[in-house]
């Protein structure tokens, strides 16, 4: 099987390759269990002699990505950007909703069931509805990511706003703090570590939900690369898109974990 020669060897090719390799090396160190599975997969394909449409070996998937870096980098960045924008919007909306629920029991009674219903509906079922509302383009993908990251943000910010240091709520009342002061100087700072947990959960699922939406829409990003490749039976390319998505997801998750650790260190 020959990889396509679409976007190839530019002079700067060595550096991104090395960069990719170093990320891959770190990946190996952390996820050696995954590597064993990949090794078994490679061995299985070699022994069974399945062709690439049935099951491409992992090495040719890697080769596919390495020789089509431009395509995968463009699609990957598109997906990443959509995932980040969607997560930011979803977390902002979730936090604002949590603050409203903290402020008034009326909002709490209104928003909590709504948030539950939204999260219970599968993302794939939401795509056509949101696409009808926003249009068949990138806005719908962003909206899907936002909807999915909304719920953890709403739940964790909500519990964080109430996880106050012992005695601090009484202290604020005796010191004549207004509701705004309690929010600004007590509840919001107390919610920050919880908010970081929501960010970690959001970061892990944001790329996935972006790809699901892109796959359903077929307009942009890794999801549409996957969908087009699958339609032309190019499973190597389809799995290449999955590989890039996995790498982006894992990096995002690791970044969120270290950010959370830094914040916890300061807060606890």
């Amino acid at each position: 099987m020959e990889p396509e020669q679409g976007v190839t060897a530019e002079p700067i090719d060595a550096n991104p390759l090395r960069w990719l390799y170093s990320i891959f090396a770190r990946f190996v160190a952390r996820f050696w269990g995954v590597i064993i599975i990949l090794g078994a997969w490679q061995a299985w394909v070699l022994i069974s002699g399945y062709n690439a449409i049935v099951l491409p070996p992992p090495l040719s998937v890697l080769h596919q990505v390495a020789t089509n870096l431009g395509l995968f980098a463009f699609a990957g960045l598109q997906t990443l950007a959509v995932a980040i924008i969607g997560t930011v919007i979803g977390m902002l909306l979730g936090s604002v909703a949590a603050i409203l629920a903290w402020y008034s029991r009326l909002f709490s009674g209104l928003l909590t069931p709504l948030a539950l219903i939204f999260t219970a509906v599968p993302a794939v079922a939401l795509v056509p509805v949101i696409a009808r509302l926003l249009g068949y383009d990138i806005r719908t993908v962003i909206a899907i990511v936002a909807v999915i990251s909304f719920f953890p943000s709403f739940v964790f910010t909500g519990s964080g706003l109430r996880a106050l240091p012992p005695g601090s709520a009484d202290l604020f009342r005796v010191n004549g703090a207004s509701t705004w002061m309690q929010l600004r100087y007590l509840a919001l700072p107390a919610a920050v570590p919880h908010w970081m947990v929501a960010l970690r959960l959001g970061a892990a699922s944001a790329v996935l939900s972006a790809i699901i939406a892109e796959f359903a829409m077929g307009t942009s990003g890794l999801g549409s690369v996957f969908s087009e490749a699958r339609d032309s039976f190019d499973m190597t390319r389809a799995l290449g898109a999955s590989l890039v998505a996995t790498i982006i997801s894992v990096i995002g998750f690791l970044l969120a974990i270290s950010a959370e650790r830094i914040v916890r260190d300061r807060w606890d």
Partner: peptide, 19 residues
């Protein structure tokens, strides 16, 4: 008195804000 910030209070919990 509380609204006018005339009272100071300390509890068994120090109630210092960790951040």
């Amino acid at each position: 008195c509380a609204a006018n910030h005339r009272m100071g209070i300390a509890f068994q919990d120090h109630a210092l804000l960790p951040w």
